[in-house]
Design a protein around this nucleic acid. Sequence first.
DNA 1: CATGGGATTGACT
DNA 2: GTCAATCCCATGC
Length: 199
Amino acid sequence: MSPAAARPPRAWWARPVLDLARELIGATLSCAGSAGVIVETEAYHDTEAACHAHIGLTRRTHVLFGPPGTAYVYRSYGIHALFNVVAEAEGVGAAVLVRALRPVAGLEAMGARRGRVGPRELCSGPGKLTQALGIELPDNGADLTRPGRIEIRPTATGPDQDAVVAAPRIGIIKAAELPWRFCLRGSPWLSRPVPVAPR
DNA sequence: CATGGGATTGACT
DNA sequence: GTCAATCCCATGC
């Protein structure tokens, strides 16, 4: 695989959210002594109804409209913390949800945080990977362009685009037809398999 | 101030 | 396959 690039500057994160969601496949996400390679993402944009930012600027969504390269962490179903990275220009509400990782470092710490589960269950879901990495609500708003608890290192050359598959997003009702889920083709570390027949 | 829904997971039938 | 857990916050009275 390609070597890790340096910590990307603000402008790197400012690209269109669909481009960023693809680009992040293969990047390494690390936090609290553990790390994994991103194998699944989803894009969200304020112009479509599934995005939290669709309702406009509120206390919950203001991070989404802020500077790109910022972490957006929110609680889902009262239980799980889900991790996103803000994309596009400041003033646009857009973010990439990280949905699954291939664990590569700190697997013991991941297991301690997740409870005794098999390696395939450590990071194969958006709520699982935040628990495995120790990402929680206080990480909301973290600036990923500065040194901190959470770090994302893309590959130097970006992912091989032939290896990235697009599919409909998971677990949403609104705008469910958009193929804005991106997966590493054939990866055994996905939250769910890519559907065989596209719709 | 009360209510309702949600980008999920794990346990159970 | 079904379903509850549990909390943040937007919305409405």
